[in-house]
């Protein structure tokens, strides 16, 4: 387990020359990146841009091929997730045969910083039946349970890999709103990944744009679109430019 340093002083994520190569090629190369505190970060890029790889490197599930990454000042190892970090993978893994109550109990038994009352409150907010088995829940309900599990740990950094991907538009909105409310009131840095910038526009205040394993754009939204250009247009322009450079 990582020794926990003062999360107040260290940056949630700081990467230097970070790269990851799989057998089929580079998923992320020469990435230098800083994620500041108390931001809601949109990690945006087309499919295969390296979003999940970056999250895997932050959690320590993957080991960097090149460069370095620190999470609250500690280097992620394969031994376990940093206690101040919660991660919700794209498939939203949950034990299908557990009930919702048992899922929360699992969180309580595996996390010393667990806040049972808070987790129960989140489930109640989502109106998920607590005695139901996870396998019988709808996609939206399952996402809410997974979110309660991630937030019940009381993290300082919450990583969500495509959390909205398999939700209908209405559920997207409720989940996103619930999430942002929690992040703002608890002072959590949230990193949301998506291949659709539009669904995060207006919610995020920091943008990281990935394309083919490289960071095209990174910074606070206020600074990036200082001249009033909409974020979506800005990102699209930057990606077109990158495609042209590649062709040339």
């Amino acid at each position: 387990m990582n020794s926990r340093r003062q999360p107040d002083q260290a940056l949630p994520v700081s990467a230097e020359g970070l790269g990851k190569k799989y057998r089929r090629g580079w998923a992320l190369r020469e990435t230098s990146l800083v994620i500041p505190r108390n931001r809601i970060v949109a990690l945006v890029g087309p499919n295969g841009a390296g979003k999940s790889t970056l999250m895997g490197l932050i959690t320590g599930l993957l080991r960097p091929t090149t460069g370095e990454i620190t999470v609250f000042g500690d280097r992620p190892t394969g031994k376990g997730l940093h206690p101040a970090v919660s991660y919700l993978a794209q498939q939203k893994p949950l034990y299908q045969q557990f009930t919702v109550t048992e899922t929360l109990m699992f969180g309580a038994r595996t996390n010393p910083t667990w806040d049972q009352r808070y987790a129960e409150y989140l489930i109640e907010q989502a109106a998920v039946p607590v005695d139901a088995r996870v396998a019988t829940l709808s996609g939206g309900q399952r996402t809410r349970v997974a979110l309660a599990l991630a937030l019940g740990k009381r993290p300082n950094l919450l990583l969500l890999d495509e959390p909205l991907a398999d939700l209908d538009p209405l559920a997207r909105e409720t989940v996103l709103r619930a999430l942002i409310t929690e992040a703002r009131t608890q002072g959590i840095t949230v990193v949301l990944s998506s291949h659709v910038l539009a669904e995060l526009e207006g919610v995020c205040d920091h943008l990281v744009l990935l394309h083919k394993g490289r960071v095209l754009l990174a910074g606070d939204v206020g600074r990036l679109s200082a001249d009033g250009t909409p974020l979506g247009e800005l990102a699209l322009n930057r990606m077109r430019q990158a495609a042209q450079e590649e062709a040339a």
């Binding site: 997730l81 919660s86 996390n111």
Partner: peptide, 15 residues
């Protein structure tokens, strides 16, 4: 099934 990710991302060591 990918549920090992669930266990690996709690504050419990893999061992």
């Amino acid at each position: 099934q990918g549920t090992h990710v669930l266990a690996f991302t709690q504050s419990v060591s893999r061992t």
